[in-house]
Amino acid sequence: MRIGVITFPGSLDDRDAQRAVRLAGGEPVALWHGDHDLAGVDALVLPGGFSYGDYLRAGAIASLSPIMTEVVAAANSGMPVLGICNGFQMLTEAHLLPGGLIRNEVGTFVCKDQALRVENTSTAWTNGFEQGQEITIPLKNGEGGYIADEETLARLEGEGLVAFRYLGKNPNGSLRDIAGITNARGNVVGLMPHPEHATEPGFGPDTPKAMRSGVDGLTMFTSALQGVLAG
């Protein structure tokens, strides 16, 4: 199973995402923002980073990249698409997911291991979790405050489209503690925290069992691979 990871100018976590795909048992395929080619992949990851230095708005210029034409078409045809951090910002700018991300309410960059609750386990990227499962993966961003108008928030809550919610103290002012959302079809998921940084023992968040042993993020990638195999 081949999962494409798109590199934009200023992407930072593209290789981490490729590594996560490999650790999950898939074949990562490096894709380039300037191409009009998805290389026949089965799923897509828009990785974290600071594309175009967050100029204009975070993710805004990248969302107009040549390859985004193909990404939007693939997403609309049902291909699993995951946006992590800057990738989530791109998905909102491309109108594949509703709402937007603004500067953290605390006014500073936030970098910490973050506890989340999985709220929707029927998406392409979360079907391997248990409903309500609590996971811990890194959060690291300056513009992670999720906002949307009341009507949109009511729809997200009513239709169960909140995929992840922050546990404990809200780290960035996100409305309704929203850390990640899905589209109605469940193939497009975006979240601010970084599952790709919690996929290999020794390099993840601390757990009660051992330092840096947390691999809760791996399930997102195995979920997509399972779904592609089943589909």
Binding site: L56, A60, T92, E93, P98, G99, A148
Partner: peptide, 9 residues
């Protein structure tokens, strides 16, 4: 459509 994002601006 491009210079602003109507969700936040």
């Amino acid at each position: 459509e491009m210079l602003s994002n109507s969700v936040i601006e």
